[in-house]
Design a protein around this nucleic acid. Structure first.
Length: 905
RNA sequence: GCGGGGGUUGCCGAGCCAGGAAAAGGCGCAGGGCUUAAGACCCUGUCCCGUAGGGGUCCGCGGGUUCAAAUCCCGCCCCCCGCACCA
């Protein structure tokens, strides 16, 4: 058999029969969406995981009787595609290598992709091919690309809507910036320092006693201002610069950095030594403290001027000690530490005074004081928590004119791909989406409690992320996309133009049919169709669309919306999925907010992380050509559950492929008609029915791994057992088994289904649990036989020479006692039954044992053994004889109902 | 640092939310079958002990609750992911 030809055959037939094209009907609808992929490369098996989970669920719901809409589009807005086009144009060797080697793009094709348009065109065709090749049940009439003119109209409408609601604001914020490229730098544009984050230092202005020269000390612990005893500068050259109308004493590096944040003017260069011993005034505290020199001061960190708090900063403590200066540390934070905290911290981590221990001690103390520390009596905030006071003092300093902010990287150096050291720049007059808006957040938080999050522990993650979300810059200077309609200098950033586009799938069908054009898509049109606002006659007039069409679109929108499930990779939790919620909550009435979100994990390759830009990468194209669609689908569903990561291992794929082949031929070999129904057949039906139940339960929770495990492997085990036991009527479950597997391996199932039927199994009803099919008797009998075989085999270990096995069943009285015990009438029985009373001890031992062991309760043990004699003999290689007399008495006595005595000879 | 997830038998990975199996499944390994042979496939075994169906020790570490804990509680150690203006 050739799975690949089966797959393309059914894909073609499905497409021709249009069975996945969804139209409103009187059935219950189910609208499932997966985030459209970003097309700066070919789709890979990571995409395949997310899409396959979605597709299996879409197929499952379809078979459950829902009218399922599963659409797809392509995301191309933003900068990476432009960047890629430039790199290809430049014939960048690394890019050419990655795209030919990992993205499977033939070199001749790749070399042509020198413009964003060609890249979009090329990869969208490839993506379409790949997705169709996996057999996704997508309604392809609704496909679109985010640079379509109609899409831009939609985005413009969305942004006007947000703006009118006051959710778009202007502001400034710090970004990582390359002074050479004069552009913000993204992670993948970095040579070094990807880990670095932007840290906000508080700058505290200490003024020189004799004039107004400012010593701006940068600190992460503004609350320690009460403990300042001196300030430190490095014995080196500094500069004096004009900053905000003041004269600041700064390192040369700090001056450079500051020049990107605010207007600064270099006044003169000075030598630190000239300031040694001069006095400065500590703001708020109004204490005069001296300036000292210290080598540990880093000119390239923040301002290059630091304040000294020996009681709470191990470096300061050690430096003062080293200088032999008699300066008394001032303790201003209380924890459980006695004495001087900095000193204690140094002791705690090892005592040696060197850079490493001081670093460790600093970290230790910072952590401790931040979490459990309280401000001491000699401060303005006695008794308050350090964690709270920190912010209060920071704000107070700025408010009173003694403070400022300085941004710095947490790790250094941070180097751009061009080789230049990056710095932090504050971008001004930027457009933001006002996610920090309290009421907006509140609405989202409240709604989270109502919606379904899969897996459920992600609810907590979402709550936290909503709290944490700050305003987001939503516009850029560079990239593909839609211009901000009220400020055409700016392009709407790509995470912001992809938040409510699920609406667009409903419009896209009409657009692709040519019924709806960009020129029709005016504000009134969207307002009416999406929000139900406006007058139909008026809307028809300004949009130049017929009233019928407008009404139809409105109706279809209301039929399909809201989104019932958005299923996505976990990388989108802290960004897209949040924005998706925020924008829905802001724009739509509550009944149109999304119902559920599901999150799945990544895929690695033989234990290695995949990377689009560095490799390794396995494209869907390659996976399909190597393993085929159904094998890949089954594998990726099985590889991991929920958000845990899956590891793609070719060895396992191969094994799975042969299992599928076995399944395929097993099916074809067992098509023949049923013979008489036996106890074993009843067992098969009963057990299968249990699996049907569990598979349904698993799918309802989107546990595809569990579902596949049950529907394929567990059933396979049943079938193997059944055949080994001599079962002849496998066809009893085959139809249902095929249906059970259709969401996962639709092509093979469709092929096998058509050996007997003319319908599409993709549209059949999914098997449901049927209580009546549970057959406890048949299950018990099977358990009994297998237990007996197991026991005989166990004993065979000790008597490998045995030729025969003698079986003796438990004495009659034991069955009587068991019955009575079950009915709770054991006491009565013992009273009435003379024989049992005689056996007092024996009876109580027996009762103890059956309470401990699970008793298989079957009716006629002898009949069962006789019926299965052939099987037992075949399994054990022993001759089975029912002859109590040949079984030694002590063994016979040990027999209990359901577990006969056996004796090997 | 903050937040989320996790540490299970050689490996991967269920089970733990609803406490009562040496602990599913797969891989690997060993033995057997099949085959001219290899591969594939099928069967059996895979913590330790045991000449009778049994016993013992196990689920990051250390405590606790319980007749009973991988499963509940407390403390500790370690690992992974996110922290943005970027898709």
């Amino acid at each position: 058999m050739d799975f690949k030809s089966i797959e393309s055959k059914w894909q073609k037939i499905w497409e021709e029969a249009k069975i996945f094209e969804a139209e409103p009907s009187d059935k219950l609808k189910f609208f499932i969406t997966i985030p459209y992929p970003y097309l700066n490369g070919n789709l890979h098996v990571g995409h395949m995981r997310t899409f396959t989970i979605g597709d299996s669920f879409a197929r499952f719901m379809r078979m459950k009787g829902y009218n399922v809409l599963f659409p797809m589009g392509f995301h191309v807005t933003g900068t990476p595609i432009i960047g890629l086009a430039e790199l290809i144009e430049k014939r960048d060797p690394r890019t050419l290598e990655v795209y030919t080697k990992y993205h499977d793009v033939p070199l001749e094709d790749l070399l042509k992709l020198t413009t964003p348009e060609r890249i979009v065109d090329y990869f969208s065709k490839e993506a379409l091919k790949a997705m169709k090749g996996v057999g996704y049940s997508i309604d392809w009439r609704r496909v679109f690309t985010t640079t379509d003119p109609e899409y831009k109209k939609f985005i413009e409408w969305q942004f006007w809507n947000l703006k009118n609601k006051g959710l778009i604001v202007k502001g400034s914020h710090p970004v990582r910036y390359c002074p050479n490229d004069q552009n913000p730098v993204e992670d993948h544009d970095l040579l070094m320092g990807e880990e670095a984050t932007i840290v906000e230092y508080t700058v505290i202005k200490f003024k020189l006693e004799e004039d107004d020269l400012v010593f701006p000390c940068a600190t992460l612990r503004p609350e320690t201002i009460y403990g300042v005893t001196n300030i430190w500068i490095k014995p080196a050259k500094y500069v004096i610069a004009k900053v905000d109308g003041e004269r600041w004493f700064l390192s040369r590096e700090a001056f450079e950095k500051l020049s990107h944040i605010k207007k600064v003017e270099l006044l003169e260069e000075v030598d630190a030594k000239d300031f040694l011993g001069k006095l400065v005034v500590v703001p708020i505290v109004n204490r005069k403290v001296p300036i000292f020199l210290a080598d540990f001061v880093d000119l390239d960190n923040a301002t290059g001027v630091v304040m000294s708090v020996p009681a709470h900063a191990p470096f300061d403590f050690a430096a003062l000690k080293n200088l032999g200066l008699k300066i008394e540390p001032i303790v201003i934070i209380k924890t459980d530490i006695d004495g001087i905290p900095a000193e204690a911290a140094i002791k705690e981590v090892g005592g040696e005074i060197n850079f490493e221990t001081l670093e460790k001690a600093t970290k230790y103390l910072y952590k401790k004081e931040f979490h459990v520390g309280k401000m001491a009596e000699n401060t303005d905030y006695a008794g308050m928590k350090v964690s709270e006071v920190k912010q209060i003092i920071h704000d107070r300093l700025i408010k009173e004119g003694y403070g400022d902010i300085f941004y710095e990287f947490s790790e250094k150096p941070v180097v751009c791909r061009c080789g230049t050291k990056c710095l932090v720049k504050v971008v001004k007059d930027q457009w933001f989406i006002n996610y920090s808006n309290f009421e907006w957040k509140k609405k989202v938080l409240d709604y989270l409690e109502e919606m379904k999050i899969i897996p459920d522990y992600y609810l907590e993650e979402f709550r936290n992320k909503v709290e944490w979300l700050k305003d987001k810059a939503c516009a850029r200077r560079k990239g593909l996309g839609t211009k901000l309609p009220w400020d055409k200098e700016w392009l709407i950033e790509s995470l912001s133009d992809s938040t409510i586009y699920m609406v667009y799938y409903i419009l896209a069908k009409f657009i692709n049919e040519g019924k709806l054009k960009a020129e029709n898509m005016v504000k009134e049109f969207f307002d009416y169709v999406i929000l139900g606002i406006g007058d139909l006659d008026e809307v028809s007039k300004v949009s130049k669309l017929s009233k019928e069409l407008i009404e139809q679109i409105r109706k279809e929108f209301l039929y399909w919306y809201p989104v019932d499930l958005r299923s996505s990779g976990k990388d989108l939790v802290a960004n897209h999925l949040l924005f998706f919620l925020f924008h829905h909550v802001a724009i739509f009435p509550k009944e149109l907010w999304p119902k559920a979100i599901a999150v799945n994990g990544y895929v690695s390759l033989e234990g290695q992380k995949m990377s689009k830009s560095k490799g390794p990468l396995l494209t869907i194209k390659k996976a399909l050509s190597t393993y085929g669609a159904d094998v890949s689908r089954l594998y990726i569903l099985l590889a991991a559950e929920y958000d845990s990561d899956a590891d793609w291992r070719s060895k396992d794929l191969e094994n799975l492929a042969s299992s599928l082949k076995r399944f395929y031929s097993l099916f074809l070999e067992n098509l023949k008609k049923e013979e008489e129904i036996t106890m074993l057949d009843r067992w098969l039906i009963s057990k299968f029915n249990r699996i049907v139940k569990e598979t349904n339960e698993a799918m309802e929770k989107l546990q595809t791994r569990r579902a596949v495990n049950l529907a394929f492997f567990e059933v396979m085990n049943l079938v193997k057992h059944y055949i080994k036991r001599g079962g002849k009527n496998l066809s009893l479950i085959l139809d249902d088994w095929i249906k059970l597997l259709t969401p996962f391996i639709p092509h093979i199932c469709e092929e096998l289904w058509h050996t007997k039927h003319n319908s599409f199994v993709s549209l059949e009803r999914y098997p449901e649990f049927d209580e009546k099919k549970i057959d406890l008797e048949a299950e018990m009998v099977e358990d009994y036989v297998m237990r007996l075989v197991e026991d005989i085999k166990e004993v065979m270990k000790f008597n490998p020479e045995a030729k025969e096995v003698y079986i003796a069943f438990a004495d009659k009285w034991k069955y009587k006692v068991l019955e009575a015990l079950k009915d709770g009438k054991l006491k009565d029985l013992m009273k009435d039954d003379e024989e049992l009373r005689m056996k007092g001890k024996e009876v109580s031992d027996f009762v103890k044992r059956i309470l401990k062991e699970k008793v298989v309760n079957v009716k006629d043990e002898e009949a069962i053994v006789l019926e299965n004699k052939d099987f037992i003999e075949a399994e054990t290689g022993l001759k089975v004889l029912i002859d109590p007399l040949k079984v030694p008495e002590e063994k016979r006595k040990a027999a209990i109902p359901g577990r006969p005595a056996i004796f090997l000879k």
